[in-house]
Design a protein around this nucleic acid. Structure first.
Lengths: 327, 327
DNA sequence: TCAGGGGCTGCAACCGGTTGCATGAAACAT
DNA sequence: ATGTTTCATGCAACCGGTTGCAGCCCCTGA
């Protein structure tokens, strides 16, 4: 149905190879010929068939983007940025959602591997060992996980955690809970490492928790029982769920307990109380991940490691510690 | 690098066509041979190359999914469901985001057209005329837009709007604002049509508004000026933004003004006040859209139209109309 | 005048599958 | 014993591009 390279060749009186070169190596063809071919192609509505091109070049011009859960508001800005960047580079993006299941994640990588030139692994739940094994099948860029020998983008959530805890101690909080995330999460580990390394804080670690508002709701009881006055939650969803759970039990935020989230998602900005949160540079990470991946195709470049800064956005969910904390 | 069909053929002592048939038409090959081939294939880690297959069959086994804005929480559950369903059917999904721009939407469809077997158009902003023209290039399933001659999935937001307004009038509200959405939005038109057709309501239509919390914030002033006591917003983001805007101006929800949203996104459930909202069956729509699309490949079936019910979830953002309305 | 070289184009093999047709063997009917 | 099916497999063309190689033309320098 659609015009092929041969149609264009016939209509413009040149050989198919000339048409091919007109598109993939324009400098090799005479300007006059090139223009004629382009005109005819335009006229016929010709577009190179990517499948055919992929067959000979071995390049699909597709990339895969694997996230734990599209519904987690942390990811869409990243996906959006990655997709826009890819499009600007003439690449298309397959998005896949693992439902937080490492098993599914592995399968997805396997099936995607032959379909794409590379994969963006965002906040993977797989172990490093498995990731390294799969790396033999397809190039990766890993976001928010440190895997040796692979291009990596990290958001410095350890720094963010420190800022959050300093903020809390600055408000007089001494006993602080850290709500950790899924066990496979690098982010969670970083937060924990940063938090435990800090002085002047009694740290209570609760979790692992599901990285959802449900996870926050579920841990509210424990938070109250732990006697803390400040909480750093794995992410904003957990923070929001926690606030809800506390509220249901008559504990108020920030009056009784201060809560800090991570990710600075829109919902947190709109919530009441507005959430104090560690902002993550997700859009920048998405763009950079795509560029790093494409770059890794061209050169046999040494894998880059980029660390992006995070910062604390103070809003209404944190306040001075109560003088007489609840028992 | 990776094993090809010829490697498998050589290693199992049969012709490539037999290997091919083993995978794509198993019933045509002797059980014994088939098992041998499968064993060898397994052994070599052979996986059919989709690009090559696409070249001869004309089927890519990919589908495109186009949404206005991935960051709009309405879409992720739909995307997630569609992607899971597609995967179950051995299809992969390209997700693309148009940034609410009809121009970009058209370009995306054009470039995606050759790469996929069909496209899911979710809440398109393009005109029906353009959609019909593009339909010549690639099969569509349209979600939340009525386009003749195409498989369509509608969420009955008109019914939802009626339920919302009945709910408000039942609480004593007489003068109600409808915050309309983007001009290309079918959903917005349906809501408007349903609302204007209702008796016993003084309807004030405001907009079009951007379908974001920013859009809601921006229209707060106008809402107050209009003297309404109840509001039906284009979606939850607008509703949340509006509540924020009203709050900034000292108008409280639901005490002074009642607000109903649409979509029933998670953020709305967590917001305070928790949002009364029209719930949309997004996940079901996503699954069904995929099935309708695949179905449209096989049979030259007459395009189906499916209408999915919506329902009202009453929470805290609506209450009895104030006896002495402001204004 | 002729060798050498650069610029442009054509030729044809190739990428990894699919599929209509031919072939051959076995099974069955007559 | 012969003709007819049926079943399984091989053969080879084809999908729509890409690319190494060869050939041609024309320009340059000796």
């Amino acid at each position: 149905m659609a015009a092929t390279i041969r149609d264009v060749a016939r209509a413009s009186g040149v050989h198919v190879s000339t048409v091919s070169r007109t598109f993939s190596a324009p400098h090799l063809v005479n300007a006059e010929t090139r223009n004629r071919v382009l005109a005819v192609a335009e006229d016929l509505g010709y577009r190179p068939n990517r499948a055919a091109r992929a067959l000979t070049t071995g390049r699909t011009h597709n990339i895969g983007l694997i996230v734990a859960d599209i519904s987690n508001p942390f990811f869409p800005p990243l996906i959006k940025a990655a997709q826009a960047q890819a499009r600007a580079r003439d690449y298309h993006v397959f998005v896949a959602d693992t439902d937080e299941d490492p098993q599914v994640e592995e399968e997805l990588i396997q099936t995607l591997a032959k379909q794409v030139d590379g994969v963006l692994l965002c906040s993977p739940r797989l172990s490093n060992r498995v990731i390294e094994r799969l790396h033999a099948e397809v190039p990766f860029v890993v976001v928010n996980r440190r895997v040796k020998g692979m291009p990596t983008i990290l958001m410095d959530v350890g720094q963010g955690a420190r800022l959050a805890i300093e903020h809390l101690t600055g408000l007089g909080h001494r006993r602080i809970a850290l709500l950790s995330g899924p066990s496979g999460s690098w982010t969670s580990g970083e937060m924990r490492a940063a938090a435990t390394a800090m002085d002047g804080v009694e740290l209570v670690i609760l979790g692992p928790n599901a990285p959802t508002e449900r996870g926050g709701l579920a841990v509210a009881e424990e938070v109250i029982a732990s006697g803390v006055t400040g909480v750093l939650a794995y992410n904003d969803l957990v923070a929001i769920g926690l606030i809800e759970g506390l509220y249901e039990r008559g504990v108020r935020v920030p009056d009784d307990i201060s809560v800090v989230g991570v990710d600075d998602i829109v919902a947190g900005r709109l919530n009441r109380p507005k959430l104090t949160s560690v902002a993550m540079p997700t859009a920048a990470a998405g763009r950079m991940a795509v560029d790093l991946l494409l770059q890794s195709f061209d050169e046999g470049a040494t894998p880059t490691l980029a660390t992006l800064d995070t910062h604390l956005v103070v809003r209404e969910s944190t306040d001075r510690a109560a003088l007489f904390p609840r028992g």
